[in-house]
Write a protein that binds this DNA or RNA. Structure first.
Lengths: 133, 133
DNA sequence: TGCAAATGTTATATAAATCTAACATTTTTA
DNA sequence: TAAAAATGTTAGATTTATATAACATTTGCA
């Protein structure tokens, strides 16, 4: 159940999660547009994800995340959010660059390092309040 | 001249740089051992790197970095060093995990974000001295 | 110094991720 | 409601990165 997904498959899951949040549904066309790949590529990826039990996709129908698929999608989105916040708001990196970096690093950062970053953000924020800046 | 290398090719370059630093020379066998790939895979990668003008590799001979190859290898190594230092020494991440994360993220972090991290490390260090801790 | 061991290379195969082109189904609309 | 447009799927090709197996060269030592 816990085999490692490729960066590509993680991106598909994350995108499906985002589309469901935004539009209630996720379609092949939307995934394709979002990831800048052809819909034939999307189909192949969806078959793999369905085989792994991470999505449900009936022919010509919408794409849905299973419970496990949603867990993974949310986890990756969370990593992206933390990294983006850290880069853009704490380090002061340009927002476009911060997002691009976060979208790549979300696939490789360990839970341990992420946890330390979250802890660090908390500490920094408290200090800012204490020092009134 | 500035086409983007794959993560795999960057790892080969970086490893060659490390071996030359450590042993004066880099051999196919050592690269293979270091990266945990077969020497046939190393050979294929070396051909690609030679085509791109990043290494010199005469048949059955040692592998050398060109000036441009060395520049790239050093750049990646520098990114790894900064990330490792930041994770391990500033955030307090376990050294093994910090290194593993640094070795993956060194391929995706932008120069801008790296520069902000370097600046941040400098600031933190100064504060530590000022606050005597 | 010649042979065995170590090292390096090439040929061929496989997996992942993408593409184009052809085809199928569904949706929209005249 | 039938034809056109939009969307989805499948087949087959390409690229990258790896592997195994067979072969070539170099090195080290009896």
């Amino acid at each position: 159940m816990n085999e490692q997904l490729t960066e590509s498959l993680e991106n598909y899951l994350e995108t499906i999660g985002m589309l469901v949040r935004k539009n209630k549904i996720a379609r092949v066309k939307d995934i394709s547009k979002e990831l800048n790949v052809k819909s034939s590529s999307v189909n192949i990826a969806l078959n793999v994800l369905a085989d792994k039990g991470l999505i449900i996709h009936e022919k010509y129908g919408y794409v849905e995340l299973t419970k496990e698929g949603k867990r993974i999608a949310d986890d990756i989105q969370h990593k992206e959010d933390i990294l983006f916040h850290f880069f853009a708001d704490i380090l002061g990196v340009d927002k476009d660059i911060a997002l691009k970096d976060a979208c790549r690093m979300e696939h490789t950062i360990s839970d341990e390092t992420l946890a330390k970053i979250i802890f660090f953000i908390g500490k920094i924020s408290k200090n800012s309040i204490k020092n009134n800046k």
